[in-house]
Design a binder for these strands. Structure first.
Length: 428
DNA sequence: TTTCAACGAGGGCTAATGCT
DNA sequence: AGCATTAGCCCTCGTTGAAA
């Protein structure tokens, strides 16, 4: 038989590891031509396997009674049947013809020269908003786009799109180019819009212009709209999707040193700032984002569980921010002390109150850099490293999906971290 | 079969203004 | 003065396809 059906774990992206369970990819080779692979979907479900148990040479998982093995067999025989049927029709199947008929469930059309036509792939009829065409104004297309794609999303997201729309309308008015049709948008126009955005007064902030990077995000949105029009076959190509727009500069990682931490914990703050100080301390000791910290404090039993040997407590949960990665935080004794000093929990601040307090905290510490909510989280990351946890462990504590994120944004490897590593190794 | 990097976008965070 | 609102900034992860 001139077809081979192989499976593999879908390769993880850079900086990521194999998740568990992990998606299986199917790869078919017909007459020596290999397909790049497609998700193995059987009975409307992706076939998932435990990557540690996946045996590539046997093409199955080593776990007994793993339902995935059965699904793989069904999937494979279905593909083989498609191939058999095509041969029976007198065709010479290709990797694409088999893949097409298997995935789409309809036969490809045989052209006189023996090649195939894949109607569902080549000219898929898609529902198009009839009000939009290449003649439509770019502002209308933008509106149609976010109405179609942001309808079910948060209000905030829609507002961001409307903000771009407002600025776009204003640009067209100020430069006297009413109703710019979509097909007239080109790279030069986009660059001029990008430059204009950086010069305007948005009316709200006196001393602040739109940064080049922020202007870029608006152009990316317009690019998304044009991509959509291309997808709907209203435009031939997107003239601005190859432009490289300036990006944000990465900020320096700022964190509090141990003596600052000690100072913060020892500080007696009374009055209106007590609550803000308390929440900052909680974030600094756990490394949680403010929304996560609030949830944890409000329902501690739900998040805490004892370690296996019963000597410690782990705080576990899912981060509120997508993709909701799990975190496991060793509960420090200082956290208990924190809850002991209050009855119940202090009223969570409006974030505005918390931020203005951080200026006060900065002054009290004599810290030369700006202290922000992120400083608390970064401090926690570095503190756990100093305490002897490895980067992999800190990554889990902070709820990062991959270690490279921790390295990139939170952790500067200093001599002190190496010293704490020496201590850990020597104690073995 | 494994490994690699650029890029786009979601949404929390920050820092202003506005309102009472 | 203090809380509410919101434009703008930043962190972070998923998508993507091909080379090693």
């Amino acid at each position: 038989m001139a077809i081979s059906v192989r499976y593999r774990l879908r390769p993880p992206k850079k900086g990521q590891t194999y998740s568990n369970p992990h998606v299986l990819q199917c790869r078919i080779t017909v007459n020596g031509t290999q397909d790049s692979g497609f998700s193995a979907v059987w009975k409307n479900e992706k076939i998932m396997v435990n990557p540690a148990k996946w045996k590539c040479d046997q093409q199955r998982t080593s776990q007994r009674d793993d339902p995935a093995n059965e699904l793989i067999d069904g999937h494979r025989s279905a593909i083989r049947e498609v191939h058999r049927n095509q041969v029976a029709r007198g065709w010479t199947p290709t990797k694409d013809s088999v893949k097409y008929e298997f995935i789409e469930g309809i036969e490809p059309e045989l052209k006189p020269d023996g090649s195939f036509y894949f109607r569902a792939w080549d000219s898929s009829p898609k529902p198009v908003d009839r009000r939009i065409s290449e003649e439509s104004a770019i502002t209308e297309a933008l509106a149609a786009y976010y109405i179609q794609f942001c309808g079910n999303y948060a209000k905030e997201r829609k507002e961001r799109w409307q903000y771009v729309q407002r600025l776009l309308i204003r640009y067209l008015e100020e430069t006297h180019q009413p109703d710019l049709p979509c097909y007239k948008v080109n790279a030069g126009w986009a660059r001029r819009f990008h430059a204009w955005l950086q010069t305007i007064d948005t009316g709200r902030w006196k001393n602040r212009k739109i940064s080049p990077a922020h202007a870029s995000t608006m152009l990316y949105r317009i690019g998304s709209v044009l991509d959509w029009l291309v997808e709907e076959q209203l435009l031939i190509s997107n003239p601005i999707n190859s432009i490289k727009w300036p990006a944000y500069q990465q900020k320096e990682v700022i964190f509090l040193e141990q003596h600052h931490i000690d100072q913060v914990l020892a500080m007696q703050v009374r009055g209106a700032n007590f609550s803000a100080h308390w929440w900052f301390k909680l974030m600094m000791l756990t490394g949680m984002d403010y929304p996560d910290a609030k949830l944890y404090a409000q329902n501690r039993q739900k998040y805490e569980s004892p370690t296996l040997d019963g000597t410690g407590v782990i705080i576990s949960g899912l981060r509120l921010k997508p993709p909701h990665v799990q975190y496991d935080i060793p509960k420090l004794p200082q956290v208990d002390a924190l809850f002991a000093e209050v009855t119940g929990i202090p009223e969570p601040n409006s974030h505005q109150t918390l931020y203005s307090y951080l200026y006060t905290l900065q002054d009290m510490l004599g810290f030369e850099k700006r202290i922000t909510m992120k400083t608390a989280r970064k401090t926690a990351g570095v503190m756990f490293l100093y305490a002897g946890y490895t980067i992999a462990e800190v990554s889990r504590i902070l709820g990062h999906k991959s270690i490279s994120t921790t390295e990139k944004y939170y952790v500067k490897v200093t001599r002190r971290i190496v010293e704490s590593g020496m201590k850990r190794v020597n104690n073995r």
